[in-house]
Design a protein around this nucleic acid. Sequence first.
DNA 1: AGCAATTACGATCTGCGTAAGAATA
DNA 2: TATTCTTACGCAGATCGTAATTGCT
Lengths: 213, 213
Amino acid sequence: MLDNYLLEELATFAECKTLAKTAEKLHMTQPSITRGTKKLEEELGVQLFERYPNHITLTKTGELAAQVAAHIIKVNQEGIEKIRNFDQSQHSIQLGVTIPGPRILLQHLKVEFPDNVHLNPELLSEDSITSLLEKNEYTLIFSDQEIFTDQVESRYLGDETMSVHLNQFMYLASQSSVAFKDLKGLSFLVLSCRSLERNHTKCNSRCKISLSK
Amino acid sequence: MLDNYLLEELATFAECKTLAKTAEKLHMTQPSITRGTKKLEEELGVQLFERYPNHITLTKTGELAAQVAAHIIKVNQEGIEKIRNFDQSQHSIQLGVTIPGPRILLQHLKVEFPDNVHLNPELLSEDSITSLLEKNEYTLIFSDQEIFTDQVESRYLGDETMSVHLNQFMYLASQSSVAFKDLKGLSFLVLSCRSLERNHTKCNSRCKISLSK
DNA sequence: AGCAATTACGATCTGCGTAAGAATA
DNA sequence: TATTCTTACGCAGATCGTAATTGCT
């Protein structure tokens, strides 16, 4: 196995291009980096560097090795985060939302949450759900998507309904039915949370929760 | 970052369940493992072990950490293989096949290959194509699938045709057309490579090659 | 001359083993 | 008593820094 300090040296060298700059960036001296390059080649049994008297570059294999090194470092660091976050999640619960409906509801219910339940009211992007759960940054994310992976599962929670009240003086009030597209571009007075019960027009959106196993 | 020896100790402990057995498996002594457990907890700032006077177990977080550890080790080892194989692939070419058509053709052409081109005549499974290419175990795999990932791309190569010759005394010879299903269960005399030109009945199969970028 | 890489030497650190101790079943 | 984990001490190996050397631009 390749030691972390060697991986870091290789990955940094790929960025910095010279041993001197690499050493500086890592708060080390050039000779240490020189040694590192040799040790890497020795351990892998492969030529990673093209050596000239006062000049050194990566071979093709070295380029690949640097990418691999960066990847291993990333996996290591993300692993640490995952462990730390999981430990947190043993003591507290992080709730997230990707759609506004559940957010309104949860903020309303917030007063009843125990101290160790935290809601991030920010709307998370759909794409980030899986990684946020796999890293244990969130315990539970409310969304309208169904997700099943090795580490994430979804449960159907309920339908979300959105209602719009048109008073009798509004120019569309005489219509027997009104579609959402007819309302496009209009301004609304938004109801307070306490008025959530009074629903008239339905908007299709099934709400699901995704949680880490 | 977590050092490899700590990861290995943790992953091994998760299998062995006691420090003594862990030490034995790693050809080390118990006290070293004890130190490892403490150093891990210290570096992560997280409790991984439940300690009793003469007994120690993993916490929930510890269980997860052990899985993460095993994963990091795996990524490291696969990375090393990938680098070594890539270095090989700079000097030689490994050809693979998942279907028999290209195999026959390639074995036929083998005599013309340069010394550094090697064909594995074994039929590889479809599922393994991606990983074999990503690990640089193969440079080129001939298959009838089209694969595009970050590291693998496919090129269309040509159509594969299979022919069956029925001589005039065969009981189906009088039919105006014969489907493959009619031939099910019958025995064949297989033609030698030199006879590949004489094709009569076509079998649909597009041949593609997949290669690592 | 100035910069970059290498070589050589010495010091520090750190991880390992041995030996002894404490607790349990 | 046998097993398991922990603590204490000393050593060996490995990595790092300093200083000196070589080679290019």
